[in-house]
Design a protein around this nucleic acid. Structure first.
Lengths: 225, 225
DNA sequence: GTCTGCATAATTGTAGACAATTAATACTAG
DNA sequence: CTAGTATTAATTGTCTACAATTATGCAGAC
């Protein structure tokens, strides 16, 4: 029995997102509507919805009458994204130090534990999702939907930036630095927590190689496999 | 000769945006696709594009199989928006103090002058656009596209929040406070500038009445006139 | 050999028709 | 007179065909 459940626009978004984050889809590659429609076996209309959502998240650029292309975030934009992340996440951590429930501390610790497991077993898909998920979880326990949505947007763009400019084989956001932040929050130490968060983000940013971009179009179907 | 130039999705977005900001479209009102298509004389497909964009900006909520409704931002969300704005705009101002060109200082001063004129003549449409535009201009001169897009999103939501919760007749963002911020930036004084910006945003927030929301559906066509 | 102009092919944009879902109404039973 | 239900109307969701735009390949001239 082939899973004949219809593929939603969100499904397409996530598949493309992951392919970009895992560097299988390189910046500059065109995402043709007909091609995607054939691959996912859906109508072009639904593909267009997915592409519009991906554009909103800053992962693809849609040029009118030309098509959708995987973004090539500029060095300037990369720095701006981290600029905003430092500004926002510092305040989030600060707020969390001043009021966080025991249950939420547990959630954070559990998440870090999952990250450790994924890293130990070297499962790239999980590593990528979980490392970004940590920062999302911070926003979630800190406040309501809007802050969560904002961070979701920032994380999404950060993933693309990391995929493009990362020069090491290791992924950003090691679980150790995350763990330190959680413990600083748990003991209600805003000074340390905010400083750790800033250093963490600076660390991630400085690990990027902001010199060259090489675009190499390749087979779309295999990249999405 | 009636201006027979086709109405773009962006045109619809701006008309709706302004109507919401001017309180002619109240929260909770349903924006029916067919209705809008008839008013603007475009196809429903284009209306759907506009509604999707408005949802992205946080101005309407789309409930599947139900339709699009003007958002009723919760008090919690309102506070979160200003929380993020304080975090981001404080950093923007700080950055500007450390490096801003003479030409950009002039642009800021010119903008404030325009605000003064609009206030003196009491042209509400201009007042709304310009007061938000000041904060957008700060982002523009501070950096590149991404920061500008981020602020655009925040301003958009702030406008809705202001429209819903404002209790005075005056609009937020008086030009005097803006002028003070510009001068602090011009003389490169980050201490004062960031403090002024924080006070300014707190001032705007505290002027809101966060007690009641009353939704009163009314005629859509006249509201968009 | 390279560049320009034209014809062809491919891709995106748009609109309209049809299906699915939800809200409103009228009707019947208790 | 009220509650529940079936029917009808209205609205949203989706797909497919067609139009507009752009890219590609080819022929010919310089």
């Amino acid at each position: 029995m082939t899973e004949q459940t219809g593929v939603s626009a969100q499904d397409i978004v996530e598949r493309v997102w992951l392919s970009i984050a895992e560097r299988r889809l390189r910046p500059g590659v065109q995402l043709k509507e007909g091609q995607l429609a054939a691959i996912f076996d859906v109508s072009r209309a639904r593909v267009r919805q997915a592409l519009a959502a991906l554009e909103r998240d800053g992962l693809v650029t849609i040029i009118p009458n030309r098509g959708a292309f995987v973004c090539q975030p500029s060095v300037e934009e990369a720095r701006d994204v981290f600029f905003v992340r430092r500004a926002v996440e510092r305040c989030i951590v600060d707020r969390l130090c001043k009021s966080i429930s025991k249950a939420n501390v547990t959630r954070l610790r559990t998440h870090v534990a999952k990250e450790r497991t994924a890293n130990a077993q070297n499962i790239t898909t999980d590593i990528i999702k979980l490392s970004g998920g940590f920062h999302l979880l911070l926003a979630e326990v800190a406040s309501s939907d809007f802050l969560f949505a904002t961070m979701r947007d920032l994380i999404s763009r950060s993933s693309l930036i990391t995929a493009v400019y990362r020069n090491t084989n290791r992924f950003n956001c090691g679980p150790d630095e995350h763990a330190d932040i959680v413990e600083a929050i748990a003991r209600g130490d805003p000074e340390t927590a905010t400083k750790l968060m800033e250093h963490h983000l600076e660390h991630v940013e400085t690990e990027l190689d902001l010199s060259e971009i090489r675009d190499q179009p390749h087979d779309l179907k295999s990249a999405l496999a």
